[in-house]
Amino acid sequence: MQLLKQTRQYQSELAGYCRTGILQQIPGIHTGNVVQYRKLVMNVVDDILQNAYPLTYDLLTGAEWDALVAKFFAGHSCKSPQVWYMPKELIGYMVDTDHALLKQYPMLLNLLQFEWLETEMFMMQDIPVPLTRNGDLLFSKLVLNPEHRLMVLEYPVHRKKPSDIRPEDQQAYYLAAHRDEEGQVVFTELSPALLRAVEHLQERAISIQELYQLIEQDFGIQLTETDHLAIIQFIQQAYAEELIKGFAPVT
């Protein structure tokens, strides 16, 4: 290490100023101009966070948002070298610090997770999967789109404007998010039985007939004709929207 302690300290003080706005005595510093760095840094951070969390930004008051951003950037050491990925760290920061806003707005954590999921899925790396387009929805083994995530929410942030959500809305909501061929992120709300169906499809390619059996085992029930129809309908829609991408190639 060639760097002197002194130099290191000045660098740390300048970086610290950008994060906190508190300026130490640094020799030679132009006190009029150094404010530009604080401004530039905070503009970038605020901008990136607003873009990642537009609904959260709308929900919070201006003062709440500003204080959140300022405290986050001052108190949390951002780990990601890629600025587009940085907003994810806000969620971790708020959970770790037990942030007061999470109590004030009970649906806020879900809202942040939901908003981030959309960004992350839009940006995530492509995942190739062997499949064929030739098959039959009713009989062939179905291949799930590997570019998907499952999510459990306590509040219906996917359906309602956050400010319209009431305490009585609290229950479990199951959501699948996937990316289609165009690159768009599509959300699908799932019943508990359909959630299980997707979870089975996560493990391997399965036909609808096998799915009926697995769901019956999972829930210890006998599926009716109506249930079968509901599952078929779901599979058809999932195929049309590319949550199910195709069929297992016959080997």
């Binding site: 000045y10 300048l14 970086a15 994060r19 840094v41 949390h76 050491s77 951002c78 780990k79």
Partner: peptide
């Protein structure tokens, strides 16, 4: 980057 935190801006080196 300093003190293990990325700043997403370019700061001048002494």
């Amino acid at each position: 980057k300093c003190d293990n935190a990325h700043l997403y801006d370019l700061l001048p080196i002494p």
